[in-house]
Nucleic acid binder design. Structure first.
Lengths: 338, 338
DNA sequence: ATGCGGATATATAACGTTGTAAAACCTGAG
DNA sequence: CTCAGGTTTTACAACGTTATATATCCGCAT
């Protein structure tokens, strides 16, 4: 197995601590000594055992990032950004996925991998506020995503209601009048927690346009397939929308695919707007109009927040931070063809 | 901070080891004792310190997975599969990405996070065989992906040459005659390492069709944008292919987008085949024909291999394992329109 | 010479866990 | 009442580090 400090010390004929001092280049070490020890280190190919260091220091330098599903490119892209941001602070990221199951989310919340992670960034889906209160683990926790929680933790998310309203306003501005919403999960269809749905509703009400339940298509999951199924369901039941606002890009893409299969033209017959600005939407045959949250900022802020609590200001007041977003109009939206 | 075994022992009035025995439910513990200790555990909210356990046992239960880029859905989907496979063996996955840079790949190879990971699954891009020889770290290493290495490590990859030939044969079978290849990295264009390129060439030669350099479009990266750029370059320089075989789905999708923008019809004017079977391709407006490697099998085999070396058979002979693949014909390929 | 102070090296004790070996405790047979 | 034989519990050491406090060294002023 790998050599330890002791082995190096023995070979160099010095004390263990001296080797440690060299390894961590502690200032007060004679150049001669430093070289002698270094030679032994090289000869044995010594590499410090981080596990031991972790135990001694009580810190591991690892942050966990728990997302529902890596297969969703939004989370994959976000994960990449988080890994980079963490690296800038010398932290490593341990990935986990919850499949959007409440049970797993709770598990992650309650000291998952106790003591091996210094902090946790979680993007929950089913988690409830009550699950958060009475949390025992004391590792800093930052929440991401669409849900808002009444709990003392940092939450980083764009203003989903406003963003959704911007998307819908884009459609109404184009002259669309029957705007459907795709992606309310069945169980939550009428819960206020669904911010994007709320934004859709608010904007339509304000514009004096219909926003009845008929225009809302529930889904089971958040994937392309769910989007396609919801779109088909909507059309099958006779709803005739002239535009669709989807909960996310994946569902929007699925919906577009369903529309094309039925011979409907996007954007002329039905315009489509997504949410997330996943790269895939940019390169889709019909490029997708979407709401683009600032993923870099989200990742950066989340990491900074965790790191700040870890180094120095643990009792900092929890905040709700709202990074920016932009609406990116592409090919999937246009005025109705006369 | 969290309570330790010592705290629990003190509260329960027993020895530290007894508490440890209860925690690990060691058989020889009196029911009464067990209950008394359990009560103390609950009262203090004790959670075992995994770091200490790791140090003691010399194992962490963590395997690292290093991929070039999480933003590429192929790797994201693969990562998901690896995480699941690892979970089945009670291992956790630490993600890292190398951005496809040789330097980072080498770093990962040489005992990255020494001693905190038990094993490593790496999907290299630029890594050379020489980087692998003389590796000092003794954590099991499994290599994934298109490159083949002459080094004593397990390698898991589908038969890329055969798979590429299958893809090309599909095109020739459809009556396509000028089949371009997109995605040879500039530096490697003529290296034998590029298995998919080799397959393309072999199949064309055997079919007596042209496979000159003019039909090969080099790229810098592996993304959608690179695919689009390569496609445009190909057409700009006057090459007139009637089909394109792309190194991966992302590039194929980018190429399709470029073709549509130029007013060319897919599949009629130019047919397109990708590689990876990323979900995105299935839902693309023009569903993408592709080679589908068995990702579940790849993930499962990689994890099993690592775990096997970790538990029991460390000196097992390194093997090259080839999981299966299928060609999935969808809408992006068809016979030329007369 | 003697002593002082700063720089360099060391011995020892933790961090929280588990393996080992030995101690304490039972039970029932002689 | 004693002791063998088993079960249950304990003390102690170790995993590889680093912090603390202590020891050693050196040059230089007294």
């Amino acid at each position: 197995m790998g050599a330890s400090l002791k082995d190096v010390a023995q070979l160099a004929g010095v004390s263990v601590k001296t080797v440690s001092n060299v390894v961590n280049n502690y200032p007060h070490v004679t150049p001669g000594m430093r070289e002698r020890v270094q030679r032994a280190i090289d000869e044995l190919g010594y590499r410090p055992n981080l596990t031991a260091r972790h135990l001694r220091k009580g810190r591991t330098g690892i942050i966990a990032l728990a997302v529902p599903e890596l297969g969703n490119p939004y989370f994959a892209e976000l994960a990449g950004a988080v890994i980079d941001a963490a690296a800038r602070h010398d932290y490593t990221v341990l990935m986990d996925h919850t499949a959007g199951q409440r049970e797993k989310e709770v598990l992650v919340t309650q000291g998952f991998r106790a003591h091996v992670i210094d902090g946790l960034i979680l993007s929950p889906i089913e988690l409830e506020t009550s699950d958060l209160l009475g949390r025992r683990d004391d590792a800093p926790l930052v929440l991401l995503g669409e849900r808002e929680y009444d709990a003392p933790y940092d939450q980083i998310a764009i203003d989903n209601v406003a963003a959704a309203r911007t998307a819908v306003r884009h459609l109404t501005g184009l002259g669309r009048r029957r705007i459907a919403f795709i992606g309310a999960r069945r169980e939550m269809a009428r819960r206020p927690a669904h911010l994007r749905l709320r934004g859709w509703r608010e904007e339509l009400v304000e514009a004096g346009l219909p926003c009845d339940e008929d225009l809302v298509a529930a889904t089971d999951g958040y994937g392309r397939w769910d989007g396609a199924a919801a779109m088909n369901a909507l059309l099958d039941r006779g709803t005739q929308p002239d535009a669709v606002f989807a909960y996310n890009d994946l569902m929007a893409l699925g919906a577009m695919r369903a529309l094309v299969e039925r011979g409907l033209r996007v954007p002329q017959d039905i315009s489509v707007v997504g949410f997330d600005d996943v790269e895939e939407g940019r390169f889709s045959t019909i490029a997708l109009t979407t709401v683009s949250p600032d993923k870099q900022a989200i990742a950066r802020l989340a990491v900074e927040r965790v790191v700040a609590r870890l180094t120095g200001a643990p009792e900092m007041n929890p905040e709700r931070i709202q990074p920016g977003y932009t609406l990116i109009a592409r090919e999937s939206t246009a005025p109705p063809s006369a």
